[in-house]
Structure formats: C-alpha cells, structure tokens
C-alpha cells in the first residue's frame, strides 16, 4: 500500500482498516532495532548503584553524596527492564534473547521487583488498561497529582493496593509461570529485608536507609507518577485509542522518562522507548484521526 499524504482531510476519507494499515506501516519504521542505549543504561545503572555500597561502607564516598545518586539509580532502574518485558532487546529464539533476559532480571533489583512478576503483570496492564478490576496498576488512578501522592503513600502501607494488586493478578492468572513469579517476589522481598536487618545489626542502618530503603520509596512514587498516573490520567476510559494520553510534562521528556509519548508505547509496545518521540510525531495525524487524547504536545 502506498502511504497517502497524512493530512487530516485525507485521513478522514480512509476506512478504519486502512487507517490501521497506515498506522502499522509507520510504526514498523521505528521498531525492530536493538535498543543498545537501554541495555547500557540498565547494566551501568545497576553497577553504579552496587558500587555505592562499598564506596560508602569503606568511607570513600560520604553518605550525603551517595543518597541522591542512589535515588537516581533506583528511579532509573525500571525502564530498561520494561524494554525487556516487551522482548524488545531480543525475542525468544533470537541470538540476543539472553541479553533481553539478563537486563530484565537484573535492572530492577534495586526496586526489589522481580522481572517475571513485572512482565506478567505488565502484560495484563496492557491487556486491561484502566479496567477497574483487571488492570494491576489501576490503584494509581487519582483525581489529581496531589491525590496520587497521598494515595501512593497509603497504597504502600501493609495491606495497601500497591502491596496486593500484583499478587492478586498472579493468583488470577494461576499459571505455573505466575506461581513461580510469586515465589521469586517472596524470595526477593525476604532477601531485601535480610540485607536491611543485617545492615542494622552491624550498625549501618543509616547507610541502608539512604542507599536503598528511602531511595526505593522515592523511586516508587516517581515511577508510579510518570509511568502510570500521568500517561493514563484520568484512567476512566478503556479502548486502544482512549486509555493512554500524550501530555506535556513540567519536567520535560527526559525528566518524565519519555512518558509524554507513552501513548505510542501502548499502541505499539515493541517500539523502543528512545524511539517513541519520533514515532509520536510521525504518527500524530493518525492519532488525531483516531481521537487519541493529546494534551499540550
């Protein structure tokens, strides 16, 4: 099919099927490459975070300097794994599959979130975006940014939705993979607590708090805000072209970790994160023809 000129009048004359074909054709130009930037990001970020421990414990780096670095590290630890969750680095059977799984598994260790659980629940999020019962991330829905912040703190308390929604999703899936993911999550959580307790017992509670415990809470809030609340707000509609929005972030595209263009990710999950801005501008006329929510871009 020859791509027609992407002006709104022409697009209005296209059938839904032709519009979809055009959308896929444009999207294909932005997918299929290995996101080496995300691979390096995920692995280097982990190495920097791990190196903070000996640097601080052996007195080579003051704790006040390690704290902001650790916070940044934990904030940055999710997205490389997110690329792996969508098999963007290497699909099953491809030569780089091992790298996909390596990045997926190790990059989120600072967040204490195991890859298998993230992958299974994230795919459910894509399948049921904004669904009140089936979307594992629906607990981030809030009327305003302030309401999100309050809810985020509340949901992280014992018994809060953030603690239970992924487990509920895995139980609902009920597959052997889901059961394995539950065991991995439990093991990782117990390991995390064991490290915190060991640090506390040996007189390093403050170090553990400022390299892991507090950065993890700050990062969970930041990630929840920019990866879930902001791109899906108000999270009331379902449907391919209505459940995610394009938006202008106060802290720019890098400050919001590329989430201004999250709508592209939901439409074409195999487009690497760093390609989503270019894909957004290329697809914009199609998105407008589909009445996608685009605010301020």
């Amino acid at each position: 099919m020859t791509a027609p000129a992407l002006d709104p009048v022409t697009l209005k004359t296209l059938s839904s099927q032709d519009l979809m074909r055009l959308e896929s054709e444009i999207a294909r130009q932005f997918s299929g490459m290995v996101p080496w930037g995300s691979v390096a990001w995920g692995l280097c970020n982990l190495v920097v975070w791990l190196s903070l421990w000996p640097l601080v414990l052996f007195g080579h780096l003051p704790l006040w300097a390690a704290f902001p670095i650790a916070t940044l590290n934990v904030m940055l630890s999710y997205l490389p794994s997110h690329e792996a969750q969508h098999d963007i680095i290497g699909r099953p059977g491809e030569p780089l599959r091992w790298l996909n799984e390596l990045v997926g598994h190790v990059s989120t260790l600072p967040l204490v979130l195991p890859y298998r659980m993230l992958k299974l629940t994230h795919l459910e999020h894509h399948k049921h975006t904004n669904h009140s019962e089936l979307d594992p991330d629906i607990h981030t829905r809030a009327a305003s940014a302030w309401a999100f912040l309050v809810g985020s703190l509340r949901n992280r308390q014992p018994g809060g939705q953030a603690q239970t929604s992924y487990a509920t999703t895995l139980q609902r899936l009920g597959t052997p993979q889901a059961r394995l993911a539950m065991l991995e999550a439990l093991g990782l959580q117990l390991t995390y607590l064991a490290v915190l307790f060991a640090c506390a017992l040996t007189g390093h509670a403050l170090e553990a708090a400022l390299i892991w415990w507090l950065p993890r809470h700050i990062a969970a809030t930041y990630i929840g805000f920019y990866l879930s609340w902001a791109p899906h707000h108000p999270a009331l509609e379902t449907g391919r072209y209505r459940d995610t929005r394009g938006f202008r972030s106060l802290v720019g595209n890098i400050g919001s970790m590329g989430m201004q263009f999250h709508v592209i990710h939901h439409l074409h999950p195999r487009i690497p994160l760093m390609k989503t801005p270019a894909a957004f501008y290329a697809l914009r006329p199609v998105l407008e023809a589909r009445n996608c929510p685009i605010e301020g871009l």
Binding site: P158, L193, A200, G203, A205, A209
Partner: peptide
C-alpha cells in the same frame, strides 16, 4: 511489619 519495626526502624532511629 513488627519485625521491620524492631529490626530496622529501631536501629535506624538509634543511629
């Protein structure tokens, strides 16, 4: 939560 309170929060406050 109780173990976390006495095993981590308590030494953290102390420190």
């Amino acid at each position: 939560p109780f173990l976390f309170g006495i095993g981590f929060i308590a030494p953290l406050i102390d420190q």
